[in-house]
Design a protein around this nucleic acid. Structure first.
Lengths: 334, 334
DNA sequence: CTGAAAGCGCTTACAG
DNA sequence: CTGAAAGCGCTTACAG
């Protein structure tokens, strides 16, 4: 391993002069030395030791990306896409991305402090522990999709409630009167609750109803199907809390011989690329994942540069993408 | 920040004794001190500083995961899934995962050396630079899907050639006689070439042929469609080098009014979860991504524990998954 | 079983 | 413009 000392000896100067050149503090070094030292650095392939730098300067250049969950969290396309944009952007800013999949709150602080991360971005639900995490880690912490009531909170979210509203409205406009809401058991978070609330409120404001037994969050998709197809009041319109769920639901309903959208109309959430390729193409609520990722990083760096900046909770808009999975019952034979 | 020194002072011992406890070298410390020190560590929430540890012990506990590409590399489900399994497994082994998206060879060494990574796993094509990378980084380096001729190489690959063979054989058995091969322009790698070769060889061994103009790797999917539908000898069987490509191809063909599999039969590669949900369900060549990821990590740690271990090139099997996107022309009206 | 000393590779803060 | 000294938080290697 080549060190500052090696370069210094070769150049006949002190390590400080080399350090200045490495850190491009050119105004503090003679042109002659800058040139000489840079050429030696290139010839020897010197790479600064980040650990040493981090230890002495208290600046690690590490951004931690903390994702809730442990198993296959990147099989969820939403997480994979977010992570992809974030890592890319972090690199472009000259920082390093360290990725942690985490279930237990205490691990968060451990990882952050262990590497002296300068900031962190959270994907998933950490609401219950946000205060403690903030308490223990005095660095910029950017949460996503949080519904925590903590006042001082940097968060990038989307208008989940409006997503539910848009879905309900679209169903109602198309003549649907009996609704269901489907989510995975594992994803019972505020985020999902908001989508449900927007959906339910809109239905009720229209003088219709979404009863408890039409809200399905069982362990197995099979159980969902079973219940969905045997409800006392048959349902025609299903709002799934995520495209993933919608697509699997659609697949299994089709396998049982049901037609989409004739027997069941479905709306998803996320507008994943995949939703365009299934058949029928999935009508869904879209969120701009790239924008969300970029905002997250940009705000993180703003706070890195100015710790006095007030926190901000940014809510991005959502949009209904009409495709083929919702039947218009107004024109359809009654 | 709490340091060893703080704990030592509180316990009335030297930092060495605390260090021994932190590193669980319990046989070297009195039971009384172990207990006292551990309770102080818990009370104060001490977290060891990994940079300091890395600097003094030359052991960083960092595994770098290097993914070729810069833009949206995790939008490719294969990459996302591999990365997910790898990060999870790395964590379970008590190491930290640092993720780098990289285009230029020189960045590899820079990142590896900068953080003193103890090992690295590569996703994507680095064949041209493997020798240089190995030369500059004397740590265990695990490549995936490499076709490099470097003899000393740790690699986990799959039998791409066989994948091509299986696809061709399936088409031929189902009465197809005119074939095409489709890949994205960006993915012209040995990996893809092997899939093509297996496909082409099998076709030719059956006394049929795959001419140059039936091998399509244009920039835009639209151009592919255009050429595919205007070939002098009309094609009925298309082998796409990846499920991604197959699914997009299928989508666009359907939009133009072609029927799958009646007008065009299609086979993909990877067996992504998505391939089950499209309509018709995609017949594809499957590879076991989880197994691949686990092998990669396991071999990495074996070499970490015993640097003298010989390198190994592990090739996993592939399998044809028959679904609905291939028409049996033997029974179909001729 | 315990600890004092030296050092990992760098930067900060200061003196000149 | 340059450099000697001290220190970041830990571990290694040694002495007792």
């Amino acid at each position: 391993m080549i060190t500052l000392k090696d370069i210094a000896k070769e150049a006949g100067v002190s390590v400080m002069t080399v350090s200045r050149v490495v850190n491009m503090r050119y105004s503090e070094v003679s042109e002659e030395n800058i040139e000489k030292i840079n050429s030696i650095i290139n010839r020897l392939g010197y790479v600064p030791n980040s650990s040493a730098r981090s230890l002495s300067s208290k600046s690690s250049k590490i951004i931690s990306i903390i994702i809730q969950g442990e198993n296959n969290v990147l099989e969820t396309p939403y997480n994979a896409t977010m992570l992809g944009y974030i890592v890319q952007h972090v690199q472009e800013c000259g920082f390093n991305a360290m990725v942690h999949f985490i279930n237990e709150y205490s691990d968060v602080t451990k990882h952050l402090q262990s590497w002296n991360a300068e900031g962190a971005i959270f994907l998933g639900t950490f609401d219950k522990n946000i205060l403690q995490i903030q308490e223990n880690n005095k660095i910029p912490l950017v949460f996503t999709d949080s519904y925590s009531s903590v006042r001082q909170l940097i968060n990038i979210g989307i208008d989940d409630y409006k997503g539910g509203v848009l879905a309900a409205r679209h169903f109602i406009e198309n003549g649907h009167r009996e609704f269901a809401f489907v989510t995975l058991h594992t994803s019972v978070s505020q985020l999902i609750q908001q989508r449900l609330r927007g959906f339910k409120d809109t239905i009720e404001n229209a003088g219709l109803s979404l009863s408890e037994e039409h809200i399905l969050e069982p362990f197995q998709m099979e159980e969902t199907i079973q219940r969905l197809t045997t409800l006392k009041k048959p349902v025609t319109a299903i709002f799934a809390a995520a495209d993933n769920t919608a697509i699997e639901l659609m697949d299994q309903l089709k396998k049982k011989g049901y037609r989409i959208p004739e027997d069941f109309s479905i709306i998803g959430f996320d507008n994943l690329p995949m939703s365009r390729y299934v058949s029928p193409q999935l009508t869904t609520i879209s969120q701009d994942i790239m924008k969300k990722a970029h905002y997250a990083i940009d705000i993180l760096f703003q706070h890195l540069n100015d710790p006095a900046l007030p926190t901000q909770n940014i809510i991005l808009d959502v949009e209904l993408i009409k495709r083929e999975s919702v039947l218009d019952r107004n024109t359809f034979a009654k």
